[in-house]
Design a protein around this nucleic acid. Sequence first.
DNA 1: TTGCGCTTTGTATACGTATACATATTGGGC
DNA 2: GCCCAATATGTATACGTATACAAAGCGCAA
Lengths: 348, 348
Amino acid sequence: MSARKRRILSSFKSSPDASQIDVARLAGVSQAAVSRVFTNGRSVSEDTRTKVMAAVEQLGYRPNVIARSLVQNSTNIIGLVVKRFTNPFYAQMIQDFTRALQEQGYWALVLNIAENQELEDSLPMVLQYQVDGLIITSATLSSRLAEECARSGTPVVLFNRYASDASTHVVKCDNTEGGRIVADTFLDAGHKRLAFIAGEESSSTNRDRETGFVDRLKERGHNLAFRESAGDYSYELGYAAAQRLFQLDAPPDAIFCANDLIAMGAMDLARLKLNIKVPDELSIIGFDDIPSAAWPSYDLTTIRQPFGKLVDATIQVLMNAINNPECEVTELIVPPTLIWRNSSRRKE
Amino acid sequence: MSARKRRILSSFKSSPDASQIDVARLAGVSQAAVSRVFTNGRSVSEDTRTKVMAAVEQLGYRPNVIARSLVQNSTNIIGLVVKRFTNPFYAQMIQDFTRALQEQGYWALVLNIAENQELEDSLPMVLQYQVDGLIITSATLSSRLAEECARSGTPVVLFNRYASDASTHVVKCDNTEGGRIVADTFLDAGHKRLAFIAGEESSSTNRDRETGFVDRLKERGHNLAFRESAGDYSYELGYAAAQRLFQLDAPPDAIFCANDLIAMGAMDLARLKLNIKVPDELSIIGFDDIPSAAWPSYDLTTIRQPFGKLVDATIQVLMNAINNPECEVTELIVPPTLIWRNSSRRKE
DNA sequence: TTGCGCTTTGTATACGTATACATATTGGGC
DNA sequence: GCCCAATATGTATACGTATACAAAGCGCAA
């Protein structure tokens, strides 16, 4: 590791930030006048506006949003609670959320939850920043926290999570329906020995997908033959879970995986290590429709979560809650779609 | 899309946030005393501390970080400028940065640059938030912006980017050296017809990797036989670029791809569409060592960027610059490592 | 007791902005 | 030239916190 040092330019170093008072003094107007120039809808004469702007230019003045936030009681910052960055589905989600927020004039303050960490410890610190709202993904909001948010008037939208409290908005994909669709797809194709590989057991998405899958099987007179748990939503643990699944005497002929990464791990184990032909000898269906699911290497049949819709709806619900604090609590459930590819057998 | 509405709990709705003044009144002390209870290193008697904490508990008081930031002139917020979320390398990076910052008591305010967007438009708005520092990845900092940061005393660390200005710190992987290593690896294995697939042409990482590669070839008396450009760092455009490469009469027998995603695209085209055997008939080497490079499906030989070191060093440089504004400008260059896997031929 | 140093507390002010209010200016119709 | 409405401006204050300063309290040695 090589390090080179350069001398810093010291020309600007000590000049402090100019404030509206400095601008006002230079322009020969009052501080209030300067403030009005920077506030839409306030009446300022063309004359003072130009004088002010000239002073602004000369001093390199830039409004102090922190000070404005203090008096306006609004920061234009949204707390974004996230976890599994490395799952492409969530990476895309964060990308879309930050971008959509920026388009609305808001900024995302990211709260990254470690795997073993509770939201209780860190969310209060984010609330101290007087965020105008919260978007919570991949974490459970205890009712104590929900109450705390409600008390401070901070609207919360849960993304793909259950509400443990009546005061938080929810936008989610119909994970249960996704599970049902997979059940139908497998049964219609004539599969008999069906398996499910779970992701993170504690997550509500996982529970819903499994419930939908199993319940539909039962409705049609079938049972889940095997159940294995990866433990999280990763490729590696999906691979390992599949390995355990195939140590059985009569292994499954169709596997529903709780997400695409697990499915890709399971698929690689089957075809590369065990030489099982997909989809001829084994059907695999995932969940999410991450970009790599469409790659020729995998060509994974999967349940697509309607990404854009989910994100747009979340933003819309949040903005509405911010602008209209008295609004009703919304629970939006968006249906998923089956994306037919080549990792699962067609109807017989 | 189904929507259900629930009535909001209105119990807490209208109670405004308690301030230190409210706490002070209830505890029978001055506002300053309350402030001191929440400030480390200030002397407060045990008696008043308990009185204050009791009032705090009763009122549900929570410090207002925004107000504190205003008077202390420090927000504990770091602006994190990012772009390619969906590249696993950058997703991991954002994850590690946000986590490392939180461990240091800072928060990341994310600035997401759209593909066609300039930093000039949005960075000033982040500066208005009085961020204590900036980490810039995947974007070019013009010297005008660098000067603006310097003037406002906001330290900047460029991550894997060149400095266009003498006042910004830099932490990067030695991309040039990475290119050199690939050249040596290919030549040592006896390859003759060498190709390079570029990523985003305007990025300095891309330039460095190519320069190192080509220069080393020349040093050893060889030339780059083919050059193709993907246009960005994605799988899809890597696939397409490889397609163009193989329309030639005498296609390459070794391809260096500017990153892993491109390499995986190129590999899939070669082996799945053209039935070219990797590594027997074609060697492919990527850059980054993203998780999927290690998957059995790809088993991609690649240049690993020393992730943890890069992130840790960036944080360290930034913290130092924040705590010690007079510090020298640092330029840290971390060497990469060749990760041998099975997508490239060994020495003859 | 006095006096000295240390700790604790309150008062007053500052941070940079927005805005209610009062006042001053402008413009237009007659 | 006058009056009224609309516009423009300045003054004063508020947002919630930290901290300089002075004053007060305390313990302790002489």
